[in-house]
Write a protein that binds this DNA or RNA. Structure first.
Lengths: 199, 199
DNA sequence: ATGATTTTTTGCGAATTGGTACAAAAATGT
DNA sequence: ACATTTTTGTACCAATTCGCAAAAAATCAT
């Protein structure tokens, strides 16, 4: 894999720099994040940032995809769970809440749900990325519902796609509520009621 | 009411100017909206804007409260509805979707849900306004659930506060989904499933 | 008319924005 | 050693940002 590095070696690992940029966008949103802030967060100077990731929006979209990758892993985890639907959904929400409530300067919610919508109305690229991410959540959550239906643990006429979209909607709200400052207990109660109402 | 106007009369109606500013924030979010854009939208020049509404954040918060007033009216409407819970909730979602999908340049979702979270992590004032607005939605939607429970149309052990928060969560998601470009039919289907699952 | 009062208008200014040109630095290959 | 290659660092640019000071305009009171 690693060929001989030809020129001057990179002073920073692109992967960790991308994650540091992601954290900055996550806390401040796209428009409020300056290139200076990104440079400070990554320890890189602006030209290096530009060479490595392109312009500001390109870096935001790369951060977006990085976060979407984490999300994809969590959805895959839920999709391949052997546990019953109730437990799968409960654990999925529990893990999400843990992430949404974490953060060095207080709860940050979800990178995607909390930073993309503000830009989505006027920026077609961010809107497309957001729409795709929402669709992936919907699709990913449908798997455990479809499984439960196939096993007869849901009514035969249950619309698993619609139920998954409803379950995803609660995830969106958890993200916003966490960032608004609701308590972890309030979020868990919402997750509990959701599991009870949908399973 | 109208006392004798002392000095030079105002060239613009503060109420319509506030609404025009709101529309600008709604489309672009807080950080992406410049004072120049606000001045262009309202037809006022910057010092007049400043004299009438204070600085940029103050104007945003006034716009926020203006939108929250509309929201409050919709919640009041639902709270005082004589119709059964299913119809009340269905109509509430229908009206919301209508607003979320409207907009001169495409769907804008909800002013509060789509513009406040991005700023909420780093701005305590906006975070507080967002948290209060979310709480008002939760409280407002609890009324029809509590009514239905009192009339025996919900199980006696139903947690109406938790159900209302779940119903509110779908509203949040509808706002994001609309702004992401989902179709009106998809949103209505989500609302339909929600009514079915919760009532 | 004249003065008082309020708003609008013009223009400014200090700071920040995203983005880039260019030279110095640090590695490899010959 | 010397040239090549890639990245870093410094400095800069044009444009935009928010906010304000000061003058001009439009009304009312006398």
């Amino acid at each position: 894999m690693s060929e001989k590095a030809r020129g001057r070696p990179r002073a920073y690992d692109p992967e960790v720099a991308l994650w540091q940029a992601l954290e900055t966008f996550w806390a401040n949103g796209f428009s409020r994040t300056s290139l200076d802030a990104l440079a400070a967060a990554t320890g890189m100077n602006r030209p290096s940032l530009y060479a490595a990731f392109g312009d500001k929006k390109s870096l935001y979209l790369k951060s977006f995809e990085c976060f979407a990758g984490q999300l994809h892993a969590a959805l895959d985890n839920a999709a391949h769970s052997e546990a019953p639907l109730e437990a799968t959904l409960r654990d999925f929400y529990r893990d999400a809440i843990e992430i949404y409530m974490s953060g060095p300067d207080g709860p940050r919610g979800c990178f995607i749900i909390c930073t993309a919508p503000a830009e989505a109305a006027m920026d077609a690229d961010i809107r497309a990325a957001l729409k795709a991410a929402l669709a992936e959540i919907d699709k990913g959550l449908e798997v455990p519902f479809a499984k439960a239906k196939a096993e007869g643990r849901l009514p035969p006429d249950a619309d698993t796609a619609a139920l998954a979209r409803l379950a995803a909607s609660v995830l969106h709200s958890l993200a916003v509520r966490a960032r608004a400052g609701e308590t972890k207990e309030a979020l868990h109660a919402l997750a509990r009621q959701t599991v009870q109402s949908l399973c």
